[in-house]
Write a protein that binds this DNA or RNA. Structure first.
Lengths: 209, 209, 209, 209
DNA sequence: AATGAATGAGCATTCATTCAT
DNA sequence: CATGAATGAATGCTCATTCAT
């Protein structure tokens, strides 16, 4: 009665084991999935590959995950939970500095972002998955927007600031940092980036709005 | 005169037919490929599907393309050529307005951009393809950068403007407009966006730099 | 009436053209077929290849031959006709010398023999073809046998000579000369070979039979 | 002890199973391959056919063999190992009798020879395979040659015996026995054949060399 | 629970053959 | 007559998934 209670939550996970050893296997599979998805992409990665890389048999894979897609879902579940962006407080003495910090922390989640690279193709085929990700994106967007709104209410921003558009621009820039670093091989100068973004939002000190 | 000029760029076209009817079939296949890649993604789209959608037999597909990948290459070849961004002239009476025009024209190339959505997964697996795309991106980037440099030399921009970073930010914003429109379903207000971008670049009129 | 008279002989040749130009094309196809069969084998050679090699369109191939197999048949027809072995006259002053000459002339037909290398696989699948070849082989065998019989009747051979077996042995040796030369790269010493064969057949001069 | 010793000779076995049941399947595939290759030839036999004949799914075929060619290689590996000819000892009281025995034992390996019929076409396309077979042939040739040399040194043979040529002739005769039996349907009289061959090698008893 | 052998649907690709031009 | 574009049956091979051990 209690042992099997919430096993089949949402019919998704064939089995989420309680025991330590089994948990390890499950995690090992998740980790292998993540690595291979990021390295080779989602479609080309096979269940067999993941199992082998995790050091278990293919049958074991299907004990813990109904299929590849579900492993990915579990992976995202894990990561998205950890990934809520900090409350951006623009109303501070030094918003630039704060923003730089935010950007940098975002970059620290590069690993998770790795998965992002894998997703675009899936989003087309998998509305459920798309929903999860769009939702996560909306969270980010909402956070940024809230911060901007507060700043605007305080009269700190450009008076004609189109909040939605700016929030979106910031989000897009954030999201593309990892790709940029990968392509160019250069570290991002977060302070510089923050300065630029702030110019979108705040009029220069010397101005009267 | 120039229509067939650089057809063989990426090499390996098994056959580019001269006759009218055959040309139509080839184009029909290209178009079907584009549609299906955008709709369903690259990997999940099969050669058979493309052929059927184009109303030809599978054998015909392989008459004109060595495989799916090569059709994609041909597609990109076509599109990337058309996609050189206009020379961005920041040094004008009204840069905002000009930028808005650029942004809008870029959006008109939404169709081509459709393909962009298809590529991320490929970039991992296909270095040659990645090279083509990164090159195309660098062209854009260089154009934007050039414009910024000229503006800076004229003393029009923020004096401490980090050109590379701004150019990249603008590029990223440009690239993500189509995705945004698709997700939100809203038309982009290019004028508004141009205003924001210009604030990254130019100090407000009332300021002395 | 006369023009079409014997076109469809045996239903085999779709069309054996009377006109010079057409004859040339047909011959060109035959020749290309022969070369490619010998070079690459029968199965791997495609009709398209033969046509291209002959400098005609694939449609033309099918105008003159119903398929690849029939081209091969026509080829064999041609060659086997030319290939009747000479009457072996063992009853001569110097049978060794005569045999050496036969062997050498056989080798001159090496080109035709080239086709032999192509056939073994076909013989399994194509009883009709096998029949043609076995027949041709039987001709050779019969000729050799006849010669031996005459020699035996004259009391020239070993008295206990098992004619069939010797004839077969000689035939086998003959048939394998081209393969041997190809593998070893060495020219065959026909005189030496003839000597050996003669020892199978004739007792040494000093013996009384 | 030695059963599995040199399994990996030709490399590339995707998987040689350890378990009994699986071994049976693998053997079943090998056997089916052999039968079908001999019956229908190599090229026309498909992997699917072999699998079906062996009573397994096509996927199982590819579990044990990378492709048709590799199955053939495994087959040859097995057979060629068993096929080293006995040391031919010509220096005996009764070489004829000994030779007859050799010939007969060779014929007992008819099964292996079955595969020989399959090979000619392959030899053209597959140099690696050709190498294996030519090597095996050279072994035979060398054995025969050695025997002849010893006999010659003892002064038993014709003094002018061209060893290479005779050895080759004997080899060719040996190799063609199976084909002959198949075509004619008659059993070979090994004693008679041995007599003939011996006449190639040894002068008649009554002669002084 | 874990294993990995077995399955077979499904995709990529080739090629003999037809037929409209 | 010649052409070569078009066809689609047939083959090779992969991989997600099941299930007996």
């Amino acid at each position: 009665m209690s042992e099997h209670e919430d096993r089949q939550l949402a019919g998704a996970f064939p089995y989420v084991p309680q025991q330590k050893r089994a948990q390890q296997k499950r995690n090992s599979l998740l980790e292998s999935g993540r690595e291979l998805f990021i390295k080779n992409g989602y479609e080309p990665t096979t269940a067999k590959e993941i199992a082998t890389h995790a050091g278990v048999a293919i049958g074991t894979f299907y004990r813990y995950f109904s299929d590849k897609r579900q492993l990915l879902l579990a992976l995202l579940q894990n990561q998205l939970d950890k990934m809520l962006p900090p409350e951006p407080k623009w109303i501070m003495a030094n918003p630039e500095q704060f923003l730089a910090a935010i950007l940098e922390s975002h970059f620290k989640q590069l690993e998770q972002i790795g998965l992002y690279q894998v997703l675009p193709e899936l989003l087309i085929r998998d509305p459920e998955l798309a929903e999860i990700l769009i939702q996560s994106r909306k969270n980010w967007h909402a956070r940024i927007l809230t911060g901007l709104q507060q700043a605007k209410e305080k009269g700190l921003t450009w008076p004609d600031l189109e909040l939605e558009v700016v929030a979106w621009s910031i989000l897009v820039i954030l999201e593309n940092i990892p790709k940029k670093e990968k392509e160019s091989g250069l570290k991002t100068d977060y302070v510089e980036l923050a300065k630029i973004i702030c110019r979108m939002v705040f009029p220069p000190k010397g101005m009267t709005s």
